[in-house]
């Protein structure tokens, strides 16, 4: 299923790219313009992605059954992605230190780190020390 989805994703991406590339001037072989390379690359990508999508669609495979481990991994992945996205939002509104503390604490809990006190103090320590390291020692401009 994932194979079909990813092949279809690349196909859709290539079609959108090539469609947009067509709005740029192709020029000619004597004087190539901005759309020259994108149209060639996009066309090749559509062809390859189409072949891969067809192969993926007609591929015989084992029926995907409700495997408990796979389900748990899928859940963990979704929670991890949510954690990263939340980090981006908090980073924007609360600044580096608070975002790092909250997100790291959340990620440690998602990865099943035992207890509440240890992850809490650990996250706070990391947030403060990373802020000092990146902002003060390495000169990053952190919010």
């Amino acid at each position: 299923m994932t194979e079909k989805l990813i092949a279809s994703f690349f196909l859709v991406l290539s079609v959108i790219y090539t469609y947009d590339a067509c709005s740029l001037s192709f020029g000619s072989f004597v004087a190539p313009k901005a759309g020259f390379m994108p149209i060639i690359a996009g066309s090749i990508a559509i062809l390859l992605a189409l072949i891969l999508t067809i192969i993926a669609l007609f591929q015989k495979g084992c029926k995907e059954t409700g495997n408990a481990k796979a389900d748990s991994n899928g859940r963990k992945l979704i929670f991890l992605i949510i954690g990263i996205l939340v980090y981006l939002i908090l980073f924007r509104f609360l600044g580096y230190m608070a975002a790092t503390f909250i997100s790291l604490f959340y990620l440690l809990k998602v990865t099943e780190t035992a207890g509440w006190v240890y992850p809490c103090f650990f996250s706070a320590g990391i947030a403060v020390s990373f802020y000092f390291l990146f902002s003060q020692l390495l000169g990053s401009n952190l919010p």
């Binding site: 981006l88 980073f91 790092t100 990620l107 440690l108 990865t111 650990f122 990146f134 390495l138 990053s140």
Partner: peptide
């Protein structure tokens, strides 16, 4: 499970530092 979240935070911080851009994140 402790190491990887820290590495993730380092990666995000490093990526932000390149252009100070949330779009990059």
């Amino acid at each position: 499970k402790i190491l990887m979240p820290i590495v993730l935070i380092i990666t995000l911080t490093g990526a932000y530092s390149i252009n100070n851009s949330l779009f990059d994140l």
